[in-house]
Amino acid sequence: MSKQSGRRRFLLSAASFAFRVAVVVILFGGGGWFLLAHPETPVPSHWNPLRELKVTAPITPITRFQLNRALADESQCRATLAEAGVSFAAMDDLIESENCGIPGRGLLSRLTSAGVNAVETSCTTALRLTMWEYHVVQPAAQEHLGTRVNQLRHVGSYNCRQMRTTQGETSAWSSHAKADAIDIVGVRLDDGRSLTLLSDWQAAGPEGAFLRQIWRGACDWFRVVLGPDFNHLHADHFHLQGPGWGYCR
């Protein structure tokens, strides 16, 4: 992870902490709770910790709080996706074994504006992917490529298997075994161009800059992000994983 990205994440964390302290002061200062909870509160929803997450709202220090609450509540997760226009058709939970299955299962076929080949995944993965697409991928495409992303290309989310390393398979279970991750291999743009990590990651022009920016930006929405610079097993895709201690490489 770059120094600039690390500094940005530190500043966001510090701002989030300061905001939480300020909210506590307001709530215990008298009248604060009423101000936030009132249906006609003047506090914008993206600044109000009592309001639900909206994908398209501006990012503030409490967005993380709202996101974590949606990730912890399946009904709220699904409602947030529906409000954003995401196509995530509900399916019964998949239970294959103690280690394999998909809680909060659905069929994801479209994000806020980019399509995806229909994929079974968890609501939490779909929500993280949606936040990344809206707040990172589309702005980066406009900035570097002058167009929008028409489709995110992936090679799946759910796979009942153990982790793979450069030394071989381990005894630990992969995050894919619970659909807690998705692997992105490239994008198709509105102007017809297609970019892949295998072909364009090392590109010196705007295509390479775009891919590197969306890799860095994924670290704001997923806790584990692995790309071509991690090892040869990830030479052709981003591994975007929800659970984890925080690792971006």
Rank of each mutant, 00 (worst) to 15 (best):
M1C: 05
M1W: 03
S2T: 11
Q4T: 14
R8N: 15
S16M: 10
F17A: 15
A22G: 11
V24F: 10
V24L: 08
V24C: 07
V25D: 04
V25H: 06
F28D: 08
F28M: 09
G32R: 03
G32D: 02
W33D: 13
L35D: 14
L35H: 14
L36Q: 01
H38G: 10
P39I: 03
S45A: 08
H46N: 02
H46Q: 15
W47K: 04
P49D: 05
L50A: 03
L50N: 01
R51F: 02
L53P: 00
I59S: 12
P61C: 11
P61H: 03
P61L: 14
P61E: 07
L67Y: 08
R78T: 06
T80K: 07
A82W: 07
E83P: 13
A84S: 00
V86P: 07
D92W: 06
L94W: 12
L94G: 02
S97D: 00
N99L: 11
R110K: 15
R110V: 11
R110C: 10
V116I: 15
A118C: 01
A118N: 02
T121W: 09
S122V: 05
C123Y: 11
T125A: 03
A126M: 00
R128T: 02
L129K: 03
W132R: 00
V136L: 07
V137E: 13
Q138R: 13
P139Y: 00
A140V: 12
A141D: 06
E143G: 07
E143Y: 15
L145S: 09
L152P: 04
S157A: 14
Y158E: 01
N159C: 09
R161M: 15
Q162L: 12
R164M: 15
T166N: 04
T166H: 07
Q167G: 13
E169L: 09
T170N: 06
S171R: 12
A172I: 05
A177T: 05
D180W: 08
A181I: 00
I182F: 09
V185T: 15
V187F: 14
V187L: 08
L189E: 08
G192A: 08
G192S: 02
L197S: 01
G208A: 08
G208N: 01
F210T: 02
R212Y: 03
R212E: 01
Q213L: 14
Q213G: 07
R216T: 13
W221P: 05
W221V: 04
V224Q: 03
V224G: 11
V225D: 09
L226Q: 15
P228C: 03
D229K: 08
H232T: 07
L233Y: 01
H234D: 06
H237W: 01
L240N: 05
Q241T: 00
G242M: 06
P243R: 14
G244W: 12
W245T: 15
Y247I: 06
R249G: 15
